[in-house]
Nucleic acid binder design. Structure first.
Lengths: 357, 357
DNA sequence: GTGAAAGCGCTAACAA
DNA sequence: TTGTTAGCGCTTTCAC
């Protein structure tokens, strides 16, 4: 009783003694079908509990209205939020979103792409796996004529549409803010030098220091894996110094938080004694006390821009598009951990710059 | 040049001067095709850069190999983790997963179901929206003969396969643990009484108290929305009491964390003066200092069980199955916030009980 | 071991 | 305004 045969447009047509094409058109609100027929068809469809078969339509039209999104990890706040942004935009269209996780594995990423391609997706948005250095599987997508847009992570070697964030600028803003608060001896918790985002963040820090005529002291730049535990360890080390720094700009919220915990335990006041700024605006930054000032990467906006870029691409499909790199402007979210002076309004600008490459 | 026509099995057939059916069979490793032909076909397919069209296959077979998962929110750790569990299991099959978000909205939930049904999914796993009280749109799924499994949230009024967690038991374990640590005046931060999970957690708390011959003092049960701010507010109130409690069992990690912050600020030692236990094992519980003891809901396991239940259902499709309720055993994750005595090994049992309803 | 042929449910020229 | 017809790419029964 549960799985009786599904109703098709032919069933409706037979019942109404018209043809399937008329039913199809009526359901699609085709302009050249009489209102009477439309009404009748729609009514009967409802009565017969008709459910369109989008697979059949997709096969016929050659377009699935499916968009594949490949992310390293669904349970990382940042990516979840990007997906939200994508869906925000695509919900108003008739595209549906399929999400795949690569778990930062190259193999999984390849099989994800294979599955999406087989599902005849109309576009793929991806943030590639950490393992990925060869992009031939991504090139396959482009070669098949399917729009591909990379977000968050990108490589200059592989020229394709991309939406990324300006890590350099984020770090610059963070450091500048600390300087405005009166800090001069600012420690930077830096990440591995072989990862481009960490190099960029370090550059941003250094540049902000220089612009304010503060010396860049190599001793104040400490490299680590930026995990919570490292933050704790580094804070312990700093406490041994002859002269304490007056601020820390960490390239990761986790390391920043670890350091804050150690400082608090040693009764060092934050931000009075040492101000702290992190990076990524992880959700816990607003939960802890004091709140951790951090650089927001506009994850949701990133998703929205990615989806919109895709929709734009569709319009000038004919034209042979040059890949566009959209760089989002990060936003400094100021919280208690860095606010030595009077409160100040938040910077709310998030306009992206478009750079043709 | 980019979007040339895709190769089909007919193209391969023509090139090899055989028929499409042979190609299809060779690609599917059909037993009655000679090894020579198979090899040849596979080789040529690769050469011609053939990509199967799973949509066409789906239409023909009447099964899409797509599973739809509906969750309230992708950026809630718990749900993201459930999805991971689902994928863990389904990755080894030829099912692919489509994720939809309802944003806890009934309307969105309905449209998600519509989209999934149109995509001809072979099954739907869902955690319904908070707004949902009428389940007719879910009944539609069942009536169409498509397997539906609810997870996390469920209603006894709607009899369908479900995988849930035992909130009562989780609360019981948490309270029992506090009692074992020597606590007697245990405050319970309770949630809204109209939500079943909060009622269950309260019952677990009360039962554990009674079993240990401790009185259940209504004054120690405080209701709120369980947000971080409420936790702070309640902690401030508690500090005004004549006699401080020796522990708090909060039905939410957020409220627990808020309280911890206030206590720490007032130099109340955790866990020595007041022990704290939360619920949900949110990711921040292991980040803060001391770590917050919490009840883990086995989100990943929940996803795995859901997927496995689906696979089981497929086997006895003929048989008219009675809905099964799978209740997962929550696990208490013990951290610094409640550990007054010597360290003890963690309870690792996570075996579910199967209860036929 | 392979071929022929039909058809999944829908759409879209082309006709009328 | 509606009907006719063909076919998207694949699978599968029935032949041989």
């Amino acid at each position: 009783m549960s799985s009786k045969k599904r109703t098709t447009i032919h069933d409706i047509a037979k019942k109404l003694d018209i043809t399937a094409s008329t039913v199809s058109r009526a359901l699609k609100d085709h302009p050249r079908i009489s209102d009477a027929t439309k009404e009748l068809v729609i009514k009967t469809a409802k009565e017969m509990n008709y459910q369109p078969n989008s697979i059949a339509a997709a096969l016929r039209r050659g377009t699935s209205n499916l968009i594949g999104v490949i992310i390293p990890n669904i349970d990382r706040n940042f990516f979840a939020s990007v997906v939200r942004g994508v869906e925000d935009v695509l919900n108003d269209t008739n595209y549906n979103v399929i999400i795949c996780q690569s778990n930062d594995s190259l193999e999984k990423e390849k099989s994800n792409i294979k599955a999406l391609l087989e599902a005849q997706v109309d576009g793929i948005f991806a943030s590639y796996a950490k393992e990925t250095t060869d992009f031939s599987h991504f090139e396959d997508i482009v070669n098949r004529g399917i729009p591909l847009i990379l977000f968050d992570r990108m490589q200059d070697v592989f020229n394709v549409d991309a939406v990324v964030i300006d890590d350099y600028l984020g770090a610059y803003k963070a450091t500048e803010h600390l300087i405005e608060q009166g800090c001069e001896r600012i420690v930077h918790f830096a990440g591995p030098e072989n990862v481009s985002i960490y190099r960029d963040r370090r550059r941003g820090y250094e540049e902000a220091m220089k612009r304010s005529h503060l010396s860049v002291d190599e001793d104040l730049i400490i490299h680590s894996d930026l995990k919570l535990e490292s933050g704790k360890r580094l804070a312990e080390e700093i406490l041994e110094w002859n002269e304490l720094p007056d601020a820390i700009f960490s390239a990761s919220d986790y390391a920043a938080m670890g350091a804050m915990e150690v400082f608090k335990k040693h009764d060092i006041e934050i931000p009075q004694d040492i101000a702290v700024v992190g990076f990524s605006n992880e959700s816990f930054t607003s939960l802890i006390d004091p709140g951790l000032t951090s650089v927001d990467q506009h994850s949701k906006k990133m998703g929205q821009f990615t989806a919109n870029l895709f929709l734009d691409r569709l319009k000038d499909k004919s034209k042979d598009h040059t890949p566009t790199k959209t760089v989002l402007n990060p936003e400094l979210i100021i919280r208690g951990s860095s606010l030595k002076k009077v409160e100040q309004p938040q910077d709310q600008k998030i306009e992206p710059e478009h750079i043709n490459t």
